[in-house]
């Protein structure tokens, strides 16, 4: 009797007073999420709205802001440089997609057990490890019309080497080629890990049913690689849209703006030596954000659908 009494005495405050304790299963996840959410709000969400807000002003970053309404966007619609950048972004998006099949091909090629395969794998992965700045510099030297390797090859065949980075016709493709080098390595590593998880019994079963070569790849292997393909496409799209470092290193958007993309054009108008039009730069950022939003929404929607199917 005495025993039960003391039990009730100790239980009742627990039941009626300690809110934290009662709801700890609900609260704990939020507590763990809180630091990340605070950071995300301060450094990601808030700047998005700040950018949108600034895009309605004329502001040099020093003096007073003047409200200009949608003037920056009106100007953007009439800006040749903006359309060049947008067009280049589209080229980047399309050509960057080559990294996905190329990465798959190399991954399939490297997915075998021969002596020293780890070394080969690391060598293929190497370009992703080195900085984009280094990649940009290396390719600028390749393309150098007087001493570069491309020039040497042209000279051997008696041709006149093109100045790839100084010619508006080739410059964007030249930079994309430099960007593909590390991007292919990235996709390759995604597929290599994916290939590790391909179930051997399904391949066995497929083989018994007479699937070989391309058919095996298309109907048995690729469906199992779908998660890897999905991630590869997403990172490639985002990589293409935020291309900035290579352009900054290799051409600074030149010659005369013909290799510009939105991300670099935004930087140039808002923050470079001849820029400091914060409002105009912010309006470019907003346009870029809206384009990215399409992909981000697609990505989130797919995640949501997959999660739902999972349960």
């Amino acid at each position: 009797m005495q025993n039960t009494n003391s039990q009730i005495a100790s239980l009742s405050p627990l039941h009626h007073q300690n809110f934290l304790r009662r709801n700890r299963l609900k609260i704990a996840p939020w507590l763990f999420l809180a630091p990340a959410m605070v950071m995300f709000t301060i450094y990601v969400i808030a700047p998005i709205f700040q950018s949108i807000w600034i895009s309605f002003f004329e502001w040099d970053g020093l003096g007073a802001k003047t409200w200009v309404g949608n003037q920056n966007y009106v100007e953007l619609m009439d800006d040749d440089r903006f359309y060049t950048s947008l067009y280049n972004n589209v080229i980047w998006l399309v050509l960057y997609m080559l990294a996905v099949p190329a990465g798959l091909f190399i991954a399939l090629f490297l997915n075998q057990n021969v002596w020293g395969i780890r070394l080969y794998k690391s060598l293929f992965f190497f370009p992703f490890v080195i900085s984009q700045v280094v990649v940009g510099l290396v390719f600028s030297w390749f393309y150098d019309p007087s001493n570069g390797i491309i020039a040497l090859i042209f000279n051997i065949w008696g041709g006149n080497p093109p100045a790839i980075l100084a010619d508006e016709r080739y410059v964007t493709y030249g930079i994309i080629a430099a960007g593909l080098w590390p991007q292919i390595a990235y996709c390759m590593i995604l597929y290599l890990t994916g290939l590790n998880n391909v179930s051997p019994d399904q391949i066995e079963a497929g083989r018994l049913d007479g699937a070989r070569g391309l058919k095996m790849l298309w109907y048995v292997i690729l469906p199992q690689l779908r998660p890897a393909t999905f991630i590869a496409i997403v990172v490639t799209v985002i990589g293409a849209l935020r291309s900035f470092d290579l352009i900054s290193i290799m051409t600074q958007g030149g010659p005369y703006g013909s290799s510009n993309v939105l991300a670099y054009y935004m930087f140039e108008t808002a923050l470079s030596e001849y820029g400091y039009r914060m409002g105009y730069g912010a309006s470019i950022a907003v346009v870029l954000f809206l384009i990215m939003m399409v992909y981000i929404c697609f990505f989130l929607w797919r995640m949501y659908v997959q999660e739902k199917e999972g349960h």
């Binding site: 150098d144 019309p145 100045a163 980075l165």
Partner: peptide, 9 residues
């Protein structure tokens, strides 16, 4: 063509 070729590079 009095200026050097490929000057933009």
């Amino acid at each position: 063509g009095y200026f050097i070729d490929n000057h933009a590079a």
